[in-house]
């Protein structure tokens, strides 16, 4: 197998951190987006299995992306990866259809655990 992955975060460091934490079978087929709008463009034109989504971003934030995915019925598993870990935010994104809410910086073991849980590993 080998799912296609999109990493959406405005921070270069955060993207690199995540890419490094990704298990090998996923890290070969990754694309990046630096804001929500870019991410949606890719999602609309290509088949992506997993989206790792930051919340605080310019142009269009993570919540906006989740809303658009829901409105446009895009079939994708979204893992929110955020520094903003307030409970209100967690319940908000989960209600919008995100699979998981993970705290930044995300550790490899935690990532593996959740990817396994949702059948991507």
């Amino acid at each position: 197998m080998g799912s296609s992955v999109l990493v959406c975060d405005d921070s270069n460091l955060a993207r690199k951190q995540l890419l490094r934490s990704l298990p090998e079978q996923l890290s070969t087929k990754t694309q990046i987006a630096t804001n929500g709008e870019e991410a949606l463009e890719i999602l609309r034109s290509q088949n992506i299995d997993i989206l790792f989504l930051d919340l605080t971003m310019p142009v269009l934030d993570g919540v906006g992306v989740l809303q658009a995915i829901k409105d446009e019925n895009i079939n994708i598993a979204v893992f929110v990866i955020s520094a903003d870990i307030q409970p209100e935010m967690q319940s908000k994104v989960l209600a919008l259809g995100a699979k998981e809410f993970l705290r930044k910086p995300v550790k490899t073991e935690v990532l593996n655990e959740h990817l396994t849980k949702h059948g991507f590993l």
Partner: peptide
């Protein structure tokens, strides 16, 4: 790159600090 890196470190620190503060002060 340095600016981006510092910003990201601060964002993460802010997230965790606000979580700890919320627990200690019992308000968000």
């Amino acid at each position: 790159d340095q600016q981006d890196c510092l910003q990201e470190l601060i964002n993460v620190a802010m997230g965790q600090a606000s979580d700890q503060l919320a627990r200690y002060l019992d308000t968000f």
